[in-house]
Design a protein around this nucleic acid. Structure first.
Ligand SMILES: [Mn+2]
Ligand SMILES: [Mn+2]
Ligand SMILES: [Mn+2]
Ligand SMILES: [Mn+2]
Lengths: 230, 230
DNA sequence: GTTACAATTTAGCCATGACTAAAAACTACT
DNA sequence: AGTAGTTTTTAGTCATGGCTAAATTGTAAC
């Protein structure tokens, strides 16, 4: 299990160390201030535990920690986070495409696998998938060297009514939510027609494969779309 | 990660718990007395650590422990061991067949993955492989219900000279050894001709794909063969 | 500037599971 | 049976990383 980053890191990182770094990366990428409470809520441990872990990561030079300030990743910490995120998203796609695991289940599974695959296995998976760029939810897959592309699309909630769109990304990993979307036929790359936005932040009416559905405004905000081309 | 055995077990088992149970199973299956020193040497921890862990497993009703006696598995302990062994061998075969990971590398990788795959993933892997019976080293794969078939073949070291055989199992997971065998063309199911046994427990001369090789007696003892049929 | 409230940190506890060193218990040989 | 040697167990240490509860710090309203 020799990791890419192993040369730069003194002690080996546990699964939880890696999940903390990944969480910080994702929260930063959302543009949020990564406060202790935001972080601890996201990872599901108590604030005291988060403080404790962040201090340790800081000693390892993986994060910048100043008391009462938002944490941020050091360049090395970012490298580790992107490495794990690459594992995660490659695994999601691999499980989905190679083993037909439904898109609402791959996240959970990848959450554990991401910590135990070797670099050789990561490479073999990437090669077998043809070096893919996005995972089953449309999230971009970081490259081996830690680059990550721009995120495609814009929220359906801000799209213009009376036009056709293609779903390119879903900003959620919730199993139930994804299962529901799947039942509506709202899978990745499906084409949909946006009928109207009900006023006062009301539901969004969309047509998918000839059937009309009403989506809550918050749901529509999670669906990233681009104008349909064909 | 709901395991098959989860209903019968109080506390969740760590990777190391599972590796201990698997080790006890394998040592028992070899017909060895699983003494504390045998066990601790096999798993690579100190004897004191092994005693400690065996006591805990005993409290969980997974092993029978009497001081100064060989340990043995309870029915539940055996179930857990076989479940993990199934994961391990299915993963080895999957990595080898689906991702072309060489047979000398799959063991290491499976050693970690075996602890984190869900039952759903186990099932998906088994299905995608067509419910296979043996792994890339010829080791039998336990069934979902915990049955395990008889082990095929007999040692090449005890085979008669002047006859053709088929390699059906290699009793080793050592990377270097497997890589060496691979270089000689001694892969699973390959046909070979046994020329002679040198006397005084000397080397064994075999012909593989028209090339003759001399194998140490201990090496030949690890190669399980059956008479060539075709 | 006080004061109230929320966020964060500190202090201290606990379980886990490795380790070393010492004690105890078995085994085997005389 | 006694003793030497080996194996196993016990006792005690340490690091890890969660937790709760209490103390502290920062913020915003008065
Ligand atoms: Mn994870
Ligand atoms: Mn994803
Ligand atoms: Mn293992
Ligand atoms: Mn094997």
């Amino acid at each position: 299990m020799t990791k890419n980053y192993s040369s730069e890191i003194a002690s080996p990182l546990s699964s939880n160390h890696e999940d903390y770094l990944k969480a910080i990366y994702i929260l930063e990428a959302r543009g949020e201030q990564v406060t202790n409470s935001v972080l601890s809520e996201y990872i599901g441990f108590t604030p005291a535990s988060a403080t404790n872990m962040v201090k340790k990561l800081s000693q390892m030079d993986l994060v910048i920690y100043r008391p009462h300030q938002a944490v941020s990743l050091t360049p090395t910490g970012r490298r580790v986070a992107l490495e794990i995120l690459r594992h995660h998203r490659l695994l999601e796609l691999f499980l989905h495409k190679t083993l037909d695991i439904p898109w609402d289940s791959v996240h959970e599974e990848a959450e554990r696998l991401e910590h135990v695959i070797s670099e050789a296995l990561e490479d073999a998976i990437a090669a077998s998938l043809g070096y893919p760029k996005v995972d089953p939810h449309g999230d971009p897959i970081p490259t081996k060297t830690g680059e990550i592309g721009p995120t495609p699309g814009h929220p359906l909630s801000q799209a213009k009514a009376g036009r056709a769109y293609k779903l390119v990304r879903v900003l959620s990993q919730e199993k139930e939510r994804l299962a529901y979307l799947g039942r509506l036929g709202l899978n990745l790359y499906v084409e949909l027609f946006l009928r109207e936005h009900a006023p006062f932040d009301g539901p969004v009416l969309v047509e998918v494969a000839g059937v009309e559905h009403a989506l809550a405004a918050e749901m529509a905000a999670l669906l990233q779309v681009v104008p349909a081309s064909a």
